[in-house]
Design a protein around this nucleic acid. Structure first.
Length: 290
DNA sequence: GGAATCATGTGAT
DNA sequence: ATCACATGATTCC
């Protein structure tokens, strides 16, 4: 049995739990004024409440009720409250590049040099593959220095996601190699395999400012969140929150670099490159792990 | 609660 | 130069 098949059976036994979860999220965010009950939602999806219960516990170890609470605005505000600034302040000591242990997924990161960034991927070979994940079909991109890209696709063939990623480093060579990327996907989405002894190697390809923002994101632990202005402050540029937002939006390694843990000051989920529903799903899924 | 408006830093053209 | 932004604060309803 190959690794990709193993992953699929581990994470989504029926193949599409995320499809159900994302529809539930959309229903409760569209109709949040009506406060739909679990029975309402199940009926709208033409499922029984017990089916829905099974899907959620399988997906996140979370009951539907707990999940619904986890994706409300109040919950997002709670994530923000827990002293976020001390977490970010130490990012000054870390500095650019060099290995360091960060965040719950134990990542060591290095940054590409400014020269490499300007080359837009020239001379770089990027191997990629698609794999099932708790948040839909994931596109994993790796270099010999580590994980460089992680994207999500909503369409079946994933062309849009690939084009989105490939235009960031237009001069790189792209080689499909799902056997090489499967091991990364298996580790990233299985908390049981998050291990400080074997940190995940990632490489940040971006401008100096972008890399500093992404490093700040790596310091946010699971179950917490910070605002864009928190990050700006930790960079010593308190008025640059909007620039931070732009840089967060260009994060090439979504989920691993936890850009979903950046929220607006009100606790609102102000945006997400791969769709706000997916951002909500990630925060809800993490509520079951933290 | 919004909606309109302004100051703001970065990156692409 | 100019423009688009995953912001935030202020000032009106």
């Amino acid at each position: 049995m190959n690794i990709a098949a193993t992953l699929k059976s581990d994470i989504t036994p029926d193949g599409d739990d995320y499809g159900t979860v994302s529809r539930v999220i959309e229903l409760i965010t569209d109709d949040y004024r009506d406060q739909p009950t679990l029975d309402d939602i199940a009926a709208r999806l033409k499922q029984s409440p017990t089916q829905l219960q099974k899907t959620f516990t399988r997906w996140a170890g979370l009951s539907p009720k707990a999940f619904l609470q986890a994706v409300t605005l109040d919950h997002a505000k709670r994530l923000l409250r827990q002293e976020s600034l001390p977490l970010l302040e130490t990012s000054f000591e870390v500095g650019l590049s060099g290995p360091s242990r960060l965040h719950d997924l134990f990542v060591t990161h290095e940054a590409m040099s400014p020269g490499e960034w300007k080359a837009r991927g020239a001379g770089l070979t990027i191997r990629y593959g698609f794999h099932p994940s708790p948040f839909g079909r994931a596109l994993v991109m790796i270099t010999d220095r580590g994980l460089a890209g992680l994207a999500f696709s909503d369409d079946e063939d994933g062309r849009a996601a690939f084009a989105d990623m490939a235009c960031r480093w237009p001069n790189a060579d792209y080689v499909e190699d799902a056997n090489a990327t499967a091991a990364y996907a298996a580790r990233i989405f299985d908390p049981a395999r998050w291990n400080p002894q074997e940190p995940l190697r990632i490489v940040l390809i971006g401008s100096d400012f972008q890399v500093r923002v992404w490093e700040a994101l790596l310091r946010i632990p699971i179950g917490k969140a910070v605002t864009y202005s928190d990050i700006a402050g930790s960079l010593g540029q308190p008025t640059a929150s909007r620039a931070v937002g732009a840089a967060v939006g260009r994060n090439p390694i979504s989920f691993v670099v936890p850009c979903h843990r950046a929220l607006g000051k009100s606790g609102a989920l102000t945006g997400y490159h791969w769709g706000l529903t997916r951002k909500r799903a990630m925060l809800g899924w993490e509520a079951g792990k933290a």
